[in-house]
Nucleic acid binder design. Structure first.
Lengths: 407, 407
DNA sequence: AATCTTTAATAAAAAATTTAAAAAGGTGTG
DNA sequence: CACACCTTTTTAAATTTTTTATTAAAGATT
């Protein structure tokens, strides 16, 4: 397994041939990881090395218990190929998804299967100055109860909201400690490669690796939860920008002298296009006596949340539909900007609010017709995300794979 | 020379070794093209092949009259290295810069030197339905008078305003012919690879290859002429987007119910941040009796152009300064959006209006302070372009090199 | 000025990869 | 059901590349 986890420094000391061979090994593992079982011939073609070369490396990987023969593939009129795939216990990766209210984690095997229950812990970021130790304890417990061999865990991936510099492993917005961070701290404690990334970017990565953005090169993944987040796949790669902060779509200036945003500025797009904007619009409307099923919620003393409004809309509540439409139109205006600037092939809308589906899409389309050049607008498809609730854990794990196996 | 111009199809038929060798040859030529003379040791390190391999290829290239020994480099404490560089007549490239009012062209040698006078022809795109033949004749003449061997011209690069799909070689906005385009037409006529790209993107490429964006990975290049254009370097590569239309910064929606833009929409950024916006503001101001040296221009019956206003500002004209400031602030608002979305390391402002320099930069900074998150804003440097008037021709040629030599 | 250290180029030896050819295993057809 | 045809795998030979050692040249040190 050491060929997977060797650090850059150790790599530098190797001879050119050894380095190339090790890199080829990693590329094969990575290829099998993201594409499943493949034949030697196919790997040879994809990775542009001759079949004998690939065969010898495959045999080495088999000896190292990383891959196994996995039966035969279908024939296209010739000898049936032997398929090689990763052994499902070849290695494990821990994915940790930190959100504002809770932290979820699970261990995935080399077949991308979740092998532990997805544990969720109620950790409210705002209440904690430093929940690192608590998360650490949960992680330790999960690893122990999972029963995997300690040295077969090869990395940890973390995603969390706020500004994150994945290069240095530093998180800024939440529990930003002096000269440290959750990633660096875990790296020391576990003696393992630990990677951290902003949650919107991780969702983008999840869509790129496992969702509808697969095989695309220029896709924007927008997340409409309480806030408005975005991750971008540009040139077939997650765009991090110069210091890891690219994609702050929610905080582009939109409304002159608008409402105060969480970020401290006024009139950010997020103030008019997000779950919290939706709730605000609902409250404003209801307080002026709008007729809506949402009034019942308020009367019951329940907290109004985006999900409730979406549900109301899906049940035909006209007021709910109208405020979703308002939010959709503003979002559409923002998307028009994205389309003009980036000319993406696909935009994926995810998050709770995106569940409003057609009630959201229609006003977006309307705004696009109004605000973007048709020639450009026609190049971009807009769809709703289909990834499930564990998308972020999957994305975090994908990040680990990419970082370990990427040249 | 044939190894340079071999098409993809021919390449496919080669054996693996031959292909790799040919590709390595191209990479060496490309490396020497963009970085000047280098030693075998240095090439070996950069291109990650052993010194003997590089040496044999270098010798082949010398035999083929593509490169020559070019004296010795400085020593860093040992034997002085032999420097190898491209022969200045190894190959030639024709660069054609089509702008709205005129078309310029020149031939460059393999040392990136302009070997013919830069010819400029007055060709007003709006008056022509199809100036292709005229441009073709000028090109033929230039090639003939240049005296270069016909088969040493290895490619043609063209840039022009408007929407351009560089992949298919199609230009849309101007003289868009059915089933053809200037690039395809030239390709047939010259039997040479011809590449075309939008002018803003070509300027970005020029900055990336020869200007201040050299060695950067995430840089935005904004051009303020009569219009507002942009090219982006993302992940160290020119961003074209899904269909080649990325970067329409001038046409993001900015002003609600704003002025009608050339593109047909209302309130585009270009309507308030561009040379034409500047002229409009000037005219509006002067007609309401503003005190300014610009009044003299009008009284002389001269046409008011951006350059005049810039000059007035640089001579201390307060009114000119104030409207430039207005334009700068609006542009700054747009730039704030770019910074939030793309987190660039550098933004380069070019074009006539950018010559207003500090009068433009100060209001931009002001807008950024107001509209962008400090943590993000601080990551981006903003500078004024230093490239000269032939930047576009250079950029067009760089595009040819990239297309021919890129894997 | 002589010697040592560092770097570059070259030549020979060793290792690795590719090519080519043959064998093996399937599919489809007359 | 034999036979042609196709594709994958295996094997061996040929080729290429890398490594190692050597020589040459320049700068640093004593």
């Amino acid at each position: 397994m050491d060929f997977l986890t060797k650090s850059e420094k150790v790599l530098e000391q190797l001879s050119n041939v050894e380095k190339k061979k090790l890199l080829l090994k990693r590329r094969i593992v990575r290829y099998l990881y993201f594409h499943g079982s493949k034949s030697a011939a196919e790997i040879s073609k994809k990775l542009k090395s001759s079949i004998p070369t690939i065969t010898t490396i495959i045999n080495e990987l088999i000896t190292a218990n990383v891959i196994t023969e996995q039966g035969q593939g279908i024939s296209s009129g010739g000898r049936r190929p032997i398929l090689y795939g990763l052994q499902n216990n070849a290695f494990y990766i821990l994915g940790i998804d930190i959100s504002r209210l809770s932290t979820k984690m699970a261990i995935l095997n080399s077949k991308l299967e979740i092998i532990t229950p997805v544990e969720s812990y109620s950790i409210k970021l705002k209440n904690y100055s430093n929940p690192i130790d608590e998360i650490y304890q949960h992680a330790i417990n999960l690893i122990e109860t999972s029963g995997i061999k300690p040295n077969s865990l090869i990395g940890i991936g973390i995603d969390m909201p706020g500004l994150v510099d994945s290069k240095s492993g530093t998180n800024y917005t939440y529990f930003n400690l002096k000269n440290s961070s959750i990633a660096l701290s875990f790296q020391e404690k576990f003696k393992l490669p630990v990677f951290i990334e902003n949650d919107a970017k991780i969702r983008a990565l999840a869509e790129y690796r496992y969702g509808q953005a697969k095989n695309t090169k220029n896709t924007l993944i927008i997340h409409l939860g309480w806030n408005l987040g975005m991750g971008m796949i540009i040139h077939g790669k997650l765009l991090r920008g110069h210091s890891g902060f690219a994609g702050e779509f929610g905080h582009i200036p939109m409304i002159e002298n608008g409402i105060l945003c969480n970020c401290g500025k006024q009139g950010c797009l997020e103030t008019v296009a997000s779950g919290s904007a939706l709730v605000r619009l609902a409250k404003e409307g209801l307080s002026t006596g709008k007729n809506s099923t949402l009034n019942n919620i308020i009367e019951n003393g329940e907290e109004l949340i985006p999900k409730t409004i979406i549900n109301a809309a899906n049940n035909g509540d006209q007021f709910a539909i109208s405020i979703i439409s308002k939010v959709g139109f503003e979002l559409g205006k923002g998307i028009a900007i994205l389309i003009q600037l980036l000319n993406p092939e696909l935009i994926i809308l995810g998050g709770r609010v995106a569940e409003a589906n057609q009630y959201l899409l229609t006003p977006i389309e309307q705004a696009l017709n109004h605000y973007s050049i048709p020639k450009l607008r026609n190049q971009t498809k807009i769809v709703i995300s289909k990834l499930g609730v564990n998308a972020n854990i999957l994305g975090s794990v994908a990040m680990v794979i990419e970082n370990i196996f990427e040249k």
